[in-house]
């Protein structure tokens, strides 16, 4: 365990920028908290849950995967070294789960290169960041148990810093970090964790919904009801830390060359499953919403969940941002409340 005085944090961040691109929370226009390249003018520790998860650090919303020239496809593997400072535990779990999915069995090198060149500094939550947090239910917060390089606990004027990897040990060798008195520090962290966990309400409807999905006991009417409300914006998938579905398209730049790019995609779109023949196996919006939630709550593998309950990490963003209230919280409550 290390300790770092808060007054020394900016110096540490500045030092790290000499070795990699450091992404931190910043207070931008309209008071929006955005993870962006470290900028002393906007950097803040007074932030809650950023609107977007940090998944674009490994799977950018749009990225060139091949440069194509005279019929040769040259892969564009990212060499960028990026450090994410201050991400939340739910988002850390999201990165872990997505990395496992994207690189196990078949290896997505574009993703893996970014993930392996990523350093993560988790800021443990002292309680819910807003009313939609349910990470204690999904076992993905309020602090991380694995996967992080460093984890910060805000204990007033200083942070207690947990080292999670060799990379983390190197990061914590920067000037400013000091050895923490182990026994006292451990007790302080235990107390922090215990209090934080106690402040985040459990959402028992999650496991109730999971059980009901497992039994096949959810009516088609329930999905159709959500389907008729859905405005098909795809926003729930964009703000989801574990949604990694993508599309691939080619962009010409003349002379037969150009770029092959991939972009985020969403299972909520009708075209997502439509085949060239015109046949669409997932015919209704209700079925598409069912797919999204079953993927999180039913069709996950132990390989991908790590210590989490499922592949929903309980960040609550889909409930925060869905304009028509079809977030995971609303869906699990509807499932759990349905008469069987």
């Amino acid at each position: 365990m290390k300790t770092l005085a808060k007054k020394d944090l900016v110096d540490v961040l500045r030092y790290w920028t000499g070795h990699c691109t450091v992404m931190t929370p910043g207070r931008k226009s309209h008071d929006e908290i955005v993870f962006d390249e470290f900028d002393e003018a906007t950097f803040t520790l007074d932030y809650r849950k950023p609107s977007l998860p940090p998944k674009s650090s490994c799977l950018p919303q749009s990225e060139t995967i091949f440069q194509v020239d005279s019929g040769t496809y040259e892969p564009r593997i990212s060499e960028a070294k990026v450090l994410l400072f201050g991400i939340r535990a739910c988002d850390m779990t999201g990165i872990l789960q997505s990395k496992s999915f994207m690189t196990a069995d078949t290896d997505d090198v574009f993703y893996r290169a970014r993930a392996e060149n990523l350093a993560t500094v988790v800021m443990a939550c002292s309680g819910p960041q807003n009313e939609t947090c349910f990470c204690t239910t999904t076992r993905s917060g309020p602090f991380s148990k694995q996967g992080f390089d460093l984890q910060f606990y805000d204990v007033g004027d200083s942070f207690l810093v947990e080292i999670g990897s060799d990379k983390g040990a190197v990061l914590a060798s920067a000037k400013g970090f000091a050895e923490a008195d182990d026994e006292a520090a451990r007790k302080r962290v235990e107390l922090f964790r215990h209090e934080a966990q106690g402040r985040i309400a459990l959402l028992p409807e999650v496991s109730q919904a999971m059980e009901r999905l497992e039994r096949g006991g959810v009516s088609e009417e329930l999905w159709d009801k959500f389907g008729s409300k859905c405005i098909v914006c795809g926003g729930c998938t964009y703000v989801c830390p574990t949604c990694t579905c993508f599309n691939v398209a080619d962009r010409h730049s003349g002379n037969g060359g150009g770029e092959r790019i991939r972009t985020w995609d969403a299972c909520l779109y009708a075209g997502f499953t439509k085949e060239a023949s015109g046949h669409n196996p997932r015919k209704t919006q209700g079925l598409r919403i069912k797919r999204r939630h079953e993927h999180k709550l039913l069709y996950y593998t132990d390989r991908d969940t790590h210590e989490g309950l499922c592949t929903c990490v309980g960040c609550g963003r889909c409930s925060d941002y869905c304009p028509v209230h079809i977030g995971t919280i609303e869906v699990v409550k509807a499932i759990a409340g349905e008469q069987s």
Partner: peptide
């Protein structure tokens, strides 16, 4: 190769 999600069922 099982990544993009389009053919999941």
């Amino acid at each position: 190769v099982g990544k993009c999600g389009h053919c999941a069922m």
